[in-house]
């Protein structure tokens, strides 16, 4: 895991390269159609779309939980098939619904993640302490996951992801169930990691939040990319220069439906 990359690397190798992905759960009915995008170091990219647009499916393909029917996915130049361990060590994922072990306490989850990423004990303890503090979870660290509220479970998933400090973060709907303080903490952490050269792929319905924090936007509709780029670029594509992300989004979806 590198949290800092050399400047030449930063400018050249995309952290995540998704090229012409088509795929889904069934061969005869692909959910995604020819999806292509990049996440560069130091970049925060938002996947935006209605329910069922293909955001989570795209993420599942990146995680290797689904195999694409066509196209390739590379993280820092490596595909999952070429080097599974390097591939998996390069990112951290926060799923939409928290998944935790019944047998483990909050702290043990963090420790397990630290081991999986090969994090040194001291670094782990330091980072864990800070994250527990940031998310106000110190008093909960000895509890079993079954006794946590939905928001707290989500916090465990988020802490696990940030503990590893990988170069790529894939975050699916991180704000659901979080309290306002925790939402701000997540955003600040993401901003901090971006400063250090990490890339973040984020899906969310909270457009105002995404608008403020993300560098680029990918608007998905029915498994296709309707528009991609920074706000100016997608506003131009939506023929609504100067509009907010929300307006641009509605416009694009409407025109997408019209087709």
């Amino acid at each position: 895991m590198n949290d800092t990359l050399s400047s030449s690397e930063m400018s050249q190798v995309p952290l995540l390269a998704v090229d012409g992905i088509s795929g889904g759960y069934r061969m005869d009915r692909p959910v995604l159609h020819n999806i292509t995008f990049r996440v560069m170091p130091g970049e925060m990219v938002a996947l935006i779309g209605l329910n069922g647009a293909g955001k989570s499916t795209t993420m599942k393909h990146i995680l290797g939980l689904l195999a694409p029917q066509r196209g390739t996915i590379r993280i820092r130049g490596t595909s999952l098939a070429e080097n599974p361990e390097a591939y998996r060590s390069s990112y951290a994922f926060v799923p939409e619904t928290p998944l935790l072990y019944e047998e483990l306490t909050v702290y043990e989850h963090l420790e397990l993640v630290a081991r999986a990423y090969g994090l040194e004990r001291e670094a782990f303890e330091q980072r864990a302490k800070r994250l527990l503090n940031v998310f106000r979870m110190e008093s909960q660290k000895e509890r079993f996951s079954a006794h946590l509220s939905k928001g707290m479970k989500q916090k465990v998933m988020i802490m696990s992801a940030f503990l590893a400090e990988p170069s790529l973060y894939i975050i699916d709907e991180p704000f659901l169930g979080l309290d306002p303080l925790a939402i701000r903490s997540v955003l600040e952490l993401m901003a901090e990691k971006r400063e250090k050269g990490a890339g973040i792929l984020l899906s969310s319905h909270m457009l105002s939040m995404v608008d403020r924090y993300c560098d680029r936007f990918i608007i998905l509709h029915e498994g296709r990319i309707l528009a991609a780029g920074d706000l100016q670029e997608i506003a131009r594509q939506a023929k609504a220069p100067g509009a907010t992300l929300e307006e641009v989004f509605f416009r694009l979806i409407e025109s997408g439906e019209a087709k």
Binding site: L65, E85, F93, P95, Y101, L112, A116
Partner: peptide
């Protein structure tokens, strides 16, 4: 136990 857990796919457990 943990044969088909998603966790062990999400995090880089020694393959």
């Amino acid at each position: 136990y943990h044969q088909h857990d998603l966790w062990t796919h999400l995090y880089p457990f020694p393959a």
